[in-house]
Nucleic acid binder design. Structure first.
Lengths: 348, 348
DNA sequence: TTGTATGCGTTATCAG
DNA sequence: CTGATAACGCATACAA
């Protein structure tokens, strides 16, 4: 049951010294192949595993990444964090890293948690989500020399070039651009955009993608105005806004929305009669059956870990590469097309 | 940056010996108050934190709970794990416990992960979710003397009384009973049930709650048959089934569903004209606006931790109490009533 | 009540 | 290439 084997047990079983065992584990190449194999056999036979805490105590590394579990951001698309976490955990495991969860009530509290986890040597890097303009957390981490990567651009300051701030983000502009182009290419010229109020970095980028596509397609900016409407995130808000939109411009042929929540609202408002494309490809989009822009969270997770374990990543994992390695990464989303309306065919 | 203070630094600063400091931390009551305060002041001043790995090495406890992050079970209600995780992490933190994530592709792989995490002393207890009939994981854990608690009953064998198996579950029967009673008390006598096919423990329990309520209300079992319909989980399946139900029994006055996914389907099928109550109170229910049975995941998380740290919990946390402590816990869900139909009012 | 000695399992250093 | 010795930071049995 208990009484896990230690290096010493392995050493005895293989007839070598304790240190040789350690070497086999950490620098296999400096051990004679014959001995190495003998030790490996003993390890396998005894089912030995290095004791994580002991190793951490010795190496002063926890090989653990701290991730804050947000209090469920926006109702319907809260599941995206879930999927990100899953991808992150899975890939971290392959790199010998663990993922430790923590919670916090607000950014200041989160900073307190940082300090706690660092001081306890529980964690040696952080992954931050839901970054926002003027986020105090990143500055604190930089000031305290901690390694971290954010999922989300450091909106505002210095965006692309801050050498201290490693980040991965999804290219929402490209995603919405693709969605819009797809609809345009199907012959629908009056593609509307249902987005969040101006001012959020993410939201403005996404709207930009729609604008770009329309412009490229030769739609006059003046015409664009009639095809755009803003709403807070949420099914109800989306429905109301879509109703107003259609009243104002009855000839709308399709709608691209900034989120699946808004998309669902638009779908309800239009009874599924025109194509709607959402964002995030949440389970709801899959369940109801409408197209959506998928974030490719596995790619994001991979990018986060790559940055974290890379040259600029700091204390985590094996560093080796040139100093010209990228410090950020923009992941291109993927458009998931679905036949729409099946689930929405309503009886009366 | 680094160079964290150790007990020794604190001891020097407070002019005491090294383990007086340790005592202040672990058994404050055996230290003279005056000294204790002096030590505490030094701790505060230096910003000292016990080194987690060192302590774990010494105590042979990791104070860490392993949780498997499922690959997102059933589309729409996958978010419930998310909320459970959040509650668990938050409450574990208050008990000085950490939550470590891992993933697995199937039960056998999960068992391999168990072994890995145990052997590495990364974790000293597990919380399992999504238990099923004949689950090999629980048997393995029992055989290997590991402590664990499941969120979900060990369906099948020995349910309530297996002394080896600690579990917490939500009383789905009571939840559906409440939902049904609520509708009955509003004067609707023909309350239908849209549930999963017979055979799943969870599903059968929930259906039982509906049957109980109808029976108590004096509805004949024969009449019940016409009011019940089965469907796999999913919005589309729920919609189709609800359509058939209404065709078969046009006088249905309300529907209770086994999940929010099914409920949403029913809502679409009936265009929101009759009250529908779902299960799980997912963000979708909140966003669209229909009633649902809430699982109270904070209660579940609390129960899990209580069992884990209690007498029967094994290696985790402080054990102290009588041997008659409960080995399982059934959490009563809460009915969340919402005004329905606002979001579903469709334009044509 | 406080101090002293010892070991948890690992890895790093340095001698053979 | 291998083997002894020390140290990571903490906690506990024991003696003062």
């Amino acid at each position: 049951m208990s009484a896990l084997p230690t290096v010493l047990d392995v050493a005895r079983a293989a007839n070598v010294s304790r240190q040789t065992v350690s070497n086999v584990l950490n620098s296999p190449d400096i051990v004679r192949p014959e001995t190495r194999e003998r030790v490996r056999a003993a390890i396998a036979e005894l089912g030995y595993r290095p004791h994580a805490s002991a190793r951490r105590l010795r190496t002063q590394k926890s090989s653990t990444i701290g991730v804050r579990l947000d209090p469920m951001l926006d109702g319907i698309s809260g599941a995206i964090l879930d999927r990100f976490l899953h991808a992150l955990t899975e890939q971290a495991d392959r790199l010998g890293l663990r993922v430790l969860l923590f919670t916090a009530t607000d950014p200041d509290d989160e900073i307190r948690q940082f300090a706690r986890l660092i001081d306890g040597a529980d964690v040696d890097a952080f992954v931050l989500t839901a970054t926002f303009h003027g986020d105090p957390r990143t500055q604190w981490l930089i000031d305290h020399g901690q390694s971290f990567v954010t999922f989300g651009r450091p909106w505002g300051i210095d965006d692309m070039n801050d050498p201290q701030h490693l980040w991965v983000d999804v290219d929402g502009r490209a995603g919405v651009h693709d969605a819009t182009s797809h609809l345009l290419s199907q012959g629908m010229h009056r593609v509307a955009y249902l987005g969040w109020p101006t001012g959020s970095g993410t939201g403005d980028e996404r709207r930009g993608g729609w604008e770009d596509a329309l412009t490229a397609s030769g739609i006059a900016p003046g015409e664009r105005a009639a095809l755009q409407i803003e709403a807070q995130d949420g099914v109800g808000f989306g429905r109301d806004a879509a109703v107003r939109l259609v009243e104002r411009s009855p000839d709308v042929q399709a709608i691209v929305a900034a989120s699946d929540g808004l998309a669902l609202g638009a779908l309800l408002a239009t009874a599924g009669r025109i194509p709607i494309i959402g964002f995030d490809n949440t389970p709801v989009a899959a369940a109801i059956g409408f197209s959506s822009v998928e974030q490719r969270l596995d790619e994001v997770a991979g990018g986060v870990l790559e940055l974290l374990t890379g040259v600029h990543g700091g204390r985590v994992g094996a560093a080796a590469a040139s100093a010209t390695d990228p410090r950020h990464r923009l992941v291109k989303p993927r458009l998931v097309i679905r036949e729409q309306g099946e689930a929405l065919r309503i009886r009366h």
